[in-house]
């Protein structure tokens, strides 16, 4: 075994976690290598120093007073926390959710469900309103003039429209169907 291998096994060797063959090889190496021996001693001494750090134990009555404090803090909840000692009132309050779901979670679940229900009702109401009252903005009267000039009641909607360029852009689109009319006539088309 060389020094690099020893370095790899050092921590395991300190914890007596090396196999007997590896331990033997390490010991043989330590007999020959002073620096590795010093390295191992340094770790062992550091470990011993740490173990000197004893914890000062408090006075004996400390344990009793602390237990009393714990009991006070717990009040009567120790028995209530036990499922076998659950009071009938507690059973009545059970809302059917799994036990591991705590109150903040339960509240957030209820809020989410309520928000979903409100959203669905609002959506249904809005769709009914739209069905009953056709949108005025789309019931625009389009007047087709002989030169294919388009005039609309809501001119601003089509101010960029250039009818002379290409009428086909206009026809058959979502705007509705406009049939060409002869010169001097006016046609009205209600967009659907």
């Amino acid at each position: 075994m060389d020094c690099r291998e020893f370095e790899n096994y050092l921590q395991d060797y300190l914890d007596n976690e090396t196999s007997s063959s590896v331990s033997q090889a390490i010991e043989e190496h330590l007999n020959q290598c002073t620096s590795c021996r010093c390295e191992l001693d340094a770790y062992k001494k550091a470990s011993l120093l740490v173990q000197l750090r004893n914890v000062p134990q408090p006075e004996e009555n400390y344990w009793e007073t602390t237990y009393d404090k714990i009991q006070d803090e717990m009040s009567a909840s120790i028995l209530q926390m036990s499922p076998n000692a659950q009071s009938p009132e507690a059973v009545k309050q059970d809302d059917g959710l799994p036990e591991h779901i705590n109150w903040p979670k339960r509240i957030s679940y209820f809020i989410s469900i309520a928000a979903l229900v409100v959203f669905m009702i609002t959506g249904y109401w809005v769709s009914n309103e739209i069905a009953e009252k056709p949108d005025e903005e789309f019931s625009t009267v389009i007047v087709v003039e002989p030169e294919w000039r388009v005039m609309t009641a809501n001119q601003s909607l089509y101010e960029n429209f250039a009818p002379d360029a290409d009428f086909s852009k206009f026809s058959g689109a979502a705007m509705g169907v406009i049939s060409p009319v002869s010169q001097g006539l006016q046609a009205e088309a209600f967009l659907k």
Binding site: Y67, M74, I78, M81
Partner: peptide
């Protein structure tokens, strides 16, 4: 340490049924 000891046992006792 005193605070941690108390809090530890309170948590342990409260959650022991789990």
């Amino acid at each position: 340490t005193d605070e941690v000891v108390q809090e530890t046992f309170i948590r342990v006792f409260k959650n022991l049924h789990r």
